[in-house]
Design a protein around this nucleic acid. Structure first.
Lengths: 228, 228
DNA sequence: ATTGCTCTGTGACTTTAGTTACTGACTTTC
DNA sequence: GAAAGTCAGTAACTAAAGTCACAGAGCAAT
């Protein structure tokens, strides 16, 4: 397990968690002492069903991908964790002996702050802002997941792919997206060949142009139409 | 909307929520005054994406089915709400303006206790037990949903159906299950014909025997083998 | 330039699931 | 007991997705 631990750095991770910065009670300050920053290099497994861990993890830096993996190696992304969020899987572990089945992978270098369970409980009890933040993340994930179930069950792959491309092009306002077909497949829970086929169709329709390792939008508009 | 409101009855709904019974602060007692019990007859819609509602709903009695519905009418069950649980959709509404896409249907007559938002926040702040209960429900739903995404994406329908039957037979130790093919289809997000076909296969294999409106297990064991 | 690796393209085929279009059996209601 | 409604069975077909088995293109290192 490639988990490098940084004993010193309590550094400035508080910045990412505005809710925590304002708490002044003694318990929370001592929690800061107890907190440790764990650093994971890009592309390492942060957590998987068997991982023994205590406490709650706060994501201070980087981005993680949370996904389900099938026996045959296929994957589907459940959601992505962003800086300032708690790891809801560590919460699940804390509040019920829940055996989740997902894996967490660091997509970039990732800094996780680990708060011991008791200190976490204390913070939740004493900081309204912290509580709100936690509930907000939890409920957000919840509605996202419910929606995802609907999509996976009822929506054809071409539509789901078009939506995904729409999103990906949306964020950066880039015209060129750096991603492989395999990565798209792992996002949607299908296989590379299927994605290649669908992308080819989109290319023939004039929405995109395919290159090695990248996809170029030609008609943002046509892609959006597809998504419906 | 068939929502009958019961103004009087604060009755004994507290029984279902042990966490709440022990709170003695004034704010919570006044919340009890503010709380109202809503009664929904069996088979009525409790909540759907557009439903305007405030506060948090606690399920005191009965059982609800939460599901996604596709444009063509097909449905898939996300989870079932049981007495003693909060409605996580009302939480989602409270903590982010989240636009969930699920519907909630009363499967039996249902008693919902509505707690105004501020009183709910107060209870979460002041009762550790209540907090634990809420987090437990939330995280439980979360890991269930993650698992569901995996199942829907990667597991063939025959396996999913066998699992479902296994569960349903498991609960009551009944040898006979009272359910229609359509209901099974709505549970798994597929169509009636497909379920009929698969059940027929199971029957030929000697696992079950089919009757009108019921299914009888012949070999619990064979069914379990299928599930793997 | 040769070798090897990663990524994409594609045809052919299989499997799974969804749809259509009925039939008939069983129930409930009048 | 006739009519209407619900539930199940089933064949034939379509469509969507997954799998297999390659070929070849682009890129990087030696």
């Amino acid at each position: 397990m490639s988990t490098s631990i940084d004993h010193l750095a309590i550094e400035d991770w508080l910045h990412t968690f505005p809710a925590l910065a304002n708490i002044n009670d003694a318990a929370w300050l001592s929690a800061q002492q107890a907190a440790r920053v764990y650093i994971f290099p890009a592309n390492t497994v942060v957590m998987r069903p068997g991982t023994p861990s205590q406490g709650v993890f706060l994501l201070a830096k980087g981005s993680v991908r949370v996904f389900e993996r099938a026996a045959n190696g296929r994957e589907i992304v459940l959601y992505r964790g962003q800086p300032g969020e708690i790891c809801i899987l560590s919460l699940a572990k804390l509040f019920n002996q829940a055996t989740y089945s997902a894996e967490v992978l660091a997509e970039t270098e990732v800094h996780y702050v680990n708060i011991p369970s008791c200190d976490f409980r204390n913070a939740v009890a004493n900081s309204a802002a912290f509580r709100e933040a936690i509930f907000s993340t939890l409920t957000h994930r919840l509605s996202d997941l419910m929606h995802l179930v609907g999509q996976v069950t009822f929506q054809d792959l071409d539509i789901r792919l078009a939506c995904l491309l729409g999103q990906l092009f949306g964020v950066g306002t880039n015209r060129v997206l750096s991603i492989t077909h395999q990565e798209l497949a792992d996002e949607l829970g299908t296989s590379r060949e299927v994605i290649s086929r669908l992308l080819k169709e989109f290319e023939h329709m004039g929405c995109i142009r395919l290159h090695r390792g990248t996809i170029e939008v030609l008609s943002q508009h046509d892609l959006a139409c597809l998504s419906k």
